[in-house]
Design a protein around this nucleic acid. Sequence first.
DNA 1: ATGTTAGCGAACATATTGTTAGTTTAAATT
DNA 2: AATTTAAACTAACAATATGTTCGCTAACAT
Lengths: 186, 186
Amino acid sequence: MDRRQQKTRNAIFKALSTLLETKRYSNITVQEIIDEANIGRSTFYAHFETKDELLKTLCTDIFSHVFSDELMSEKTHDFSGGNTGLEARLTHILHHLKDSEKNIVGILSCESGELFMRYFKGYLTEMFSKYLNEVKVNAPADFVLNHLVGSFAETVKWWIDNKMKYTPEETTRYYIELSCVDRVTD
Amino acid sequence: MDRRQQKTRNAIFKALSTLLETKRYSNITVQEIIDEANIGRSTFYAHFETKDELLKTLCTDIFSHVFSDELMSEKTHDFSGGNTGLEARLTHILHHLKDSEKNIVGILSCESGELFMRYFKGYLTEMFSKYLNEVKVNAPADFVLNHLVGSFAETVKWWIDNKMKYTPEETTRYYIELSCVDRVTD
DNA sequence: ATGTTAGCGAACATATTGTTAGTTTAAATT
DNA sequence: AATTTAAACTAACAATATGTTCGCTAACAT
């Protein structure tokens, strides 16, 4: 890809991230992004149709790093150690999110966080479905799946909001402790 | 309060609700609300400073019904039956949300849901703190509290998104089954 | 009956949006 | 190195949304 495009793209991403540190997503205008990124008006619209599409793309970019192919693959030796591999996978996610911290914090606060969480839960749902058969609880499968995904997503959001005050390993451990996935081994 | 004010207020609330059925919150303009409510421009601004304040007020209104004083009071005989009273309280909440269904569905989808959930979690946090001492798990208290609140909020959101296909009683039962609050009685 | 107040309608400056056209500059290709 | 390709720039555009103000009318409370 043309270096100019990449440069512009990054400038736009960075501009949005920067603005998100001080303003809510809905109060940020395309104009401000343009000014902050220091690009021409038409250039922005050449890259993204709307502000929303920009946010979507930013989220997709972040998650493509977090949920790598190896993470999502059925069985990888890296993740099959320990209990069921779930703990390793979750820790892996938290570590990657920690790396993207600067970008994420702004997005997660306020309404833009809704989109982020929706994407996040989408990936998580795919991942957790594999472990659903290990859970023996008296509740419908779709209910359990949503509970696992929702509670983990909320845990991560809380973890980030609270400056990641626990290590990824601790956080995962606590989560598993509270979840129904470890009921099997009880 | 002047009947005219109440009438206008309701017209605005209803207009927003109606619009939320077909459009995302961020794409709804004050102009559209004015047209839908069939009121004068200056009238809207006499009631609410911004679109956001309107949404905030709508949420507050809904929750003031759901989280009544008796529900939040330390001990009420209505809620002290059963396990710990928690189950009764949660069921009570679900029943009330079911009554407000028409208003809520639109709000919950997309970014406006973020505000709704934040408010919701705020009330829930207050309520769940009372039950925190009943949970004996190897994890920090703030972590547990967030997990309880977050997972219940997500469960409710999922329940509403899925047309409330389980009864309030079933839903609460499943939730308690998956939560760490019933570990005590294990 | 009378003073009070909410709502109306129109107009206003200001700002944002999304698009277009012509030009400049930087990259890719030969 | 010269040429071609295309990305980015400037500036201008109509259309729309915002938030405020005015005088006027009609409904309300007492």
